[in-house]
Design a protein around this nucleic acid. Structure first.
Length: 359
RNA sequence: AGGGGUAUAGCCAAGUCGGUAAGGCAACGGAUUUUGAUUCCGUCAUUCGUAGGUUCGAGUCCUGCUACCCCUG
């Protein structure tokens, strides 16, 4: 009997994942990961409730339950990077890293070496498939919940050691199963916020770690000052809310379109169709493939934000990275974010955006 | 000093022959979301610079005052 260690988060998805595996005949063990030690701004530790839920679910399912702490690993391999990126004025995606460094590395090692597991499993909505001796990552069948985006930086080896029991399920089905099993997570609200750190006041949170430097907000069309910003790290390219400049111009919305780190300036542009908001593509120096096309250039689709519709593009491999050229100009391309490539149902891999390509 | 003009929510701004305050931006709240982006939905003036007057009824008419703007000297 194969032993599978399931990462139990205390939400519905992983609860049902564990149930399905057990039903399939695996030797299932549930493990809760605690990767963040601090309490939130209200001085409560949200992980405690999740821990209790995770434990309760495992008890109900009749599987062993353990807990591991990777707070040190999370800090060293994910959070440090997260802060470094913000310091540079970029917009990192910690959850992509969290998967490749924690859930599918630290946790995988722990499962294999300490618990004697053959495989690990999570509640991600994604699928894997072997073809010609090579593993491929596929989108989850539920288009609304597909989470392959967050798994785009996993290696073949990591994927080969993982199971995604929810890959071919729809979210409502999952909730229904949880309800029938009378699991206490059945009606629990989907989690949001940075994985493991949770929902919290982002500004206050960042302030704890990085000093904020106020500066000027410049209209890129006129090169005139239109306001002040609270610190460049609080804004991302394409952002509209929080600019507090409704008193100027044509009464159209304003969006962040650039940052000048050296002079501490935030560039904004008015109007959703302002040319300054758009770019023809982006360059990446950090490229990761799960399935790498042989061609030096190939066509596919990308999305550079989770829950975004895919855009058609052509990827041109360069020495160390790639240039991604959109078929049509796009807005909201933020350095630090991850562009994930798809060919139909298959997720080819991802690229961390370095800078946008302008015509 | 004289002449003219404008004063409506944080900002911009509609408001017809007086009939009981459009819209946009911002803000706030919510939906969506394992990255606080985008998007979407909702809430935002018992009150119209101020004091009186006319009227059944005034942001809309009249008078005084105040502020700002423009022109002439």
């Amino acid at each position: 009997m194969q032993r599978v260690i399931v990462g139990i988060s205390g939400g519905v998805d992983s609860s049902v994942a564990a149930y399905l595996l057990k039903k399939q005949g695996y030797d299932v063990i549930g493990v809760f990961m605690k990767n963040w030690e601090e309490t939130d701004e209200n001085d409560i530790c949200p992980a405690e409730e999740d821990y209790a839920d995770a434990k309760s679910v495992c008890l109900k399912l009749g599987i062993p339950f353990y807990s591991v702490n990777f707070a040190q690993e999370y800090w060293d391999r994910v959070f440090t990077y997260f802060l470094e990126e913000y310091k540079k004025g970029r917009t990192p995606n910690p959850d992509v890293l969290c998967n490749s460094e924690i859930k599918f590395r630290a946790f995988l090692d722990y499962a294999k070496h300490t618990l004697g597991a053959d495989l690990i499993a999570t509640g991600h909505y994604a699928r894997t498939e072997m073809r010609n001796g090579h593993i491929r990552l596929l989108k989850g069948l539920d288009p609304r919940k597909d989470q392959s985006y967050f798994l785009s930086f996993l290696s073949s080896q990591q994927l080969e050691n993982a199971l995604f029991p929810l890959g071919n399920m729809m979210k409502p089905q999952v909730r229904e199963i949880a309800k029938q099993l009378n699991l206490r997570t059945a009606e629990k609200k989907d989690s949001m916020g940075i994985c493991f750190i949770g929902e919290r006041n982002f500004t206050k949170f960042l302030q704890q770690y990085l000093p904020a430097k106020k500066g000027d907000m410049i209209d890129i069309d006129t090169n005139k000052k239109v306001g002040e910003h609270e610190g460049l790290m609080y804004y991302t390219i394409g952002q509209r809310r929080g600019l507090r400049i409704g008193n100027l111009g044509e009464g159209e919305r304003w969006y962040v379109c650039g940052k000048d780190m050296e002079h501490n300036l935030l560039y904004v542009a008015q109007g959703a169709d302002n040319p300054h908001l758009f770019c023809t593509g982006f360059h990446s120096d950090e490229l990761h493939f799960i399935s790498e096309p042989d061609e030096a250039s190939f066509g596919c689709t990308v999305k550079y934000r989770y829950q975004q519709t895919e855009k058609k593009c052509t990827v041109h491999k360069t020495g160390s990275g790639c240039d991604v050229v959109f078929d049509e100009s796009q807005s909201g391309v933020a350095p630090g974010q991850v562009g994930v490539f798809y060919l139909g149902e298959e997720c080819l891999g991802g690229a961390i955006i370095d800078y946008p390509l302008k015509p």
